[in-house]
């Protein structure tokens, strides 16, 4: 034995041969890909840099962000309504929400988008007015369903179905005892929803909604098929002219990646905040309070 005190020796982690091999193999693959990507002239990194902040691209990005947040906001509102309807004791209301959710979750969103774009084939005119009277106006559906409207409607209606399920899941995470306590105090249904159920469902709804935002952000690329000049369509418009397909797809991808990373940060913070074991501790809770009861004599 050497002179060092055995009790003070560091304890080393065991590294298997496999770990060393994995380091070498993965590094080689990584370096290979990097080398190929940076030396292959067909990637045209100069073109990527040139178009990265091009006006058309930035406008496309802004439209993508608008579509993301607008359809998320509208979809969440509609989803909340559907979730409440689904929990209704009145059968036809619950069934209506059920059918809606089944249809919109059971068909591809791309198909739904194209459907809304072409809905004028089904209903050439939309009339708003009082039935069986002459009062009201007629609107040409084709004019109303401009690509961007169709995109917004399609994304919103689809998102609502998913949000309804997320919100309903949140509702069911609220204990039966909470509802009974509210009932025994004589709270009305709406009051119970606003003051007891929704606040407590939030911890499970918010992180899932963050995920949906990120999904929606990338999902908006689908509306390029309608000719809406969002990020992907903007890139396509440019390369249709210049034939620089790959560099422009890289431009779009880089923006998607950057924005996804930017959105992931608050999302992971939210998830941390709400997934803690103490998630029942609300935001305003004071930390590290000492739980001592006042002495009998101190009681006011």
């Amino acid at each position: 034995m050497t002179g060092t005190d055995s009790a003070l020796k560091p304890r080393l982690k065991r590294r298997s041969t496999f770990e060393y091999v994995a380091w070498v193999v993965c590094s080689l693959i990584g370096i290979g890909i990097l080398a190929s990507v940076s030396t292959n002239p067909n990637f045209r990194w100069g073109v990527v840099a040139q178009y990265f902040t091009h006006d058309t691209i930035i406008r496309g990005l802004m439209l993508t962000l608008f579509l993301t947040f607008a359809s998320m906001a509208l979809g969440t509102l509609l989803g909340l309504g559907l979730a409440i309807m689904r929990g209704s004791k009145i059968k036809p209301i619950a069934a209506t929400a059920n059918v809606y959710i089944t249809i919109f979750r059971g068909t591809p969103v791309l198909v739904q988008l194209i459907f809304w774009f072409n809905v004028s084939a089904l209903y050439p005119d939309l009339s708003i007015g009082i039935p069986f009277t002459d009062i009201g106006t007629k609107i040409d559906t084709n004019a109303l369903m401009a690509p961007i409207t169709a995109a917004l409607v399609g994304l919103t209606l689809n998102e609502a179905a998913y949000m309804a399920e997320i919100i309903r899941g949140g509702f069911s995470s609220v204990g039966k005892g909470q509802i009974e306590a509210a009932d025994s105090l004589g709270m009305s249904g709406g009051m119970k929803m606003r003051k007891v159920i929704i606040p407590q469902a939030m911890p499970s709804i918010i992180p899932a909604t963050g995920n949906q935002v990120i999904g929606m952000f990338k999902g908006t690329s689908l509306v390029s098929v309608l000719g809406v000049a969002e990020l992907l369509q903007s890139a396509q418009l440019i390369y249709a002219r210049t034939y620089e397909t790959i560099p422009l797809l890289i431009v779009a991808s880089l923006w998607y990646l950057v924005m996804t990373l930017l959105l992931s940060y608050p999302q992971s913070k939210l998830e941390q905040k709400y997934s803690r074991a103490t998630s029942r501790l609300p935001r305003k809770a004071k930390k590290a309070v000492v739980l001592t009861e006042p002495e009998e004599g101190n009681l006011r």
Binding site: E180, S184, G186, Q200, L281
Partner: peptide
Amino acid sequence: SPKKLAEQRTRVGMVFQSFNLFPN
């Protein structure tokens, strides 16, 4: 009606085994 039932309930207090305080 739910309203009348709620009104009757306000006159009867209930204490539960699992407390059921509102955590929020």
